[in-house]
């Protein structure tokens, strides 16, 4: 079943969601980096044992704890089953996995697209709103202060305003013939379901998610960067199956990323007047490869899960 983009012409209208303030209105796609050369050298963040036993060390440790256990440490801002570290591997340290040491020195960031400047706090607020399907913490909140302290500390010795190797997920070229959802399902069943569950729902131990959900109401929403198939393919190729990163072919990574992102997830909080069509036009049409507002198997995606 080859996929082609068939933007739905149907004018679907949904109940208008209460308009939430969106501090940074898209999960701006990082300029993709090339696949790293073998034996590439990356920036080395300091080790935890180097942290001082004072108020600074305390704040950094708290930031790290929030980053790896966001649902428990900052429940008022999280609306799904995810933690920051689910996508920023090795607690935000791993190169090629959007590490915090690659991010922090690049802000405030100017974006010519809308002639705006975004601060580091706003970038993190974006991840809360979209990836965590939650409510962004205020810029002066303790949660953002702690996460900023953690990022600052990880960046110790890194140059400012210079793109470091390993900042983004390395780009994976789209297969020449496009992606294939049926083959994506096969990869999923053979290599992913053992951890993420047969329905992408993740797996819990007691109340805690151990394996994060890949779609459905507990996953990232339709506005998150990971909803782009190109971004998800790059992440998956680099880091999945867990511990066996780099083992999938480019084609497998694209197929399984497309399969994952052809399922429903929470609505895009930027939904315009309840219209998927309008929202696709404004926010998704030029945002990499994605299936928001696109018809798959006779159903227009982007309905949301609630």
């Amino acid at each position: 079943m080859r996929m082609y983009l068939a933007v739905a012409a149907t004018f679907l209208s949904l109940p208008v969601a209460a308009q939430t303030a969106v501090p940074m209105d898209d999960q701006s796609q990082l300029a993709p980096s090339a696949q790293p050369a073998a034996g590439a050298e990356y920036f080395q963040p300091p080790s935890e044992s180097d942290l001082p036993d004072n108020a600074f060390g305390e704040l950094v440790r708290e930031g790290r704890a929030i980053f790896v256990d966001t649902r428990k440490r900052a429940p008022e801002y999280v609306g799904n089953g995810m933690t920051c570290a689910n996508c920023h591997m090795d607690q935000g340290r791993k190169p090629n996995s959007a590490p915090l040491w690659g991010a922090y020195p690049m802000y405030p960031a100017y974006r010519s697209k809308n002639d705006k400047v975004n601060t580091y706090a706003e970038r993190m607020q974006g991840c809360f709103q979209f990836s965590m399907n939650g409510t962004p913490p205020p810029a002066d909140s303790h949660v953002l202060n702690a996460l900023t302290a953690y990022s600052y500390w990880l960046s110790t010795g890194a140059p400012v305003a210079e793109v470091l190797p390993g900042r983004a997920y390395p780009e994976v070229p789209e297969p020449a013939g496009g992606y294939d959802l049926a083959q994506g399902r096969q990869v999923y069943d053979a290599q992913c379901a053992v951890c993420h569950g047969p329905e992408g729902q993740g797996q819990k131990s007691g109340e805690d998610f151990v394996f994060p959900p890949l779609w459905g109401k507990e996953s990232f929403n339709w506005g998150a960067g990971m909803h782009r198939i190109n971004t998800a393919a790059a992440f998956i190729k680099e880091s999945m199956p867990l511990g066996k990163g780099g083992s999938l072919t480019d084609e497998q990574a694209w197929n399984v990323a497309a399969f994952m992102n052809s399922h429903e997830r929470p609505q895009d909080p930027r939904l315009i007047d309840g219209s998927i069509e309008e929202t696709r036009k404004k926010y998704h049409a030029n945002d990499g490869v994605n299936l928001y507002g696109v018809e798959v198997d006779g159903v227009v995606l982007g309905q949301g899960t609630n």
């Binding site: 607690q91 340290r93 053992v194 131990s205 805690d208 151990v210 867990l242 511990g243 066996k244 990163g245």
Partner: peptide, 27 residues
């Protein structure tokens, strides 16, 4: 609790659950 990611070794608890209590039918 941290793994050894320089060798692609994930945190044991990221599959075996908090405190290594086990998860589902495979871990």
């Amino acid at each position: 609790l941290r793994g050894a990611w320089d060798r692609n070794i994930p945190e044991c608890v990221s599959c075996h659950g908090p405190g290594g209590v086990g998860v589902g039918d495979a871990f």
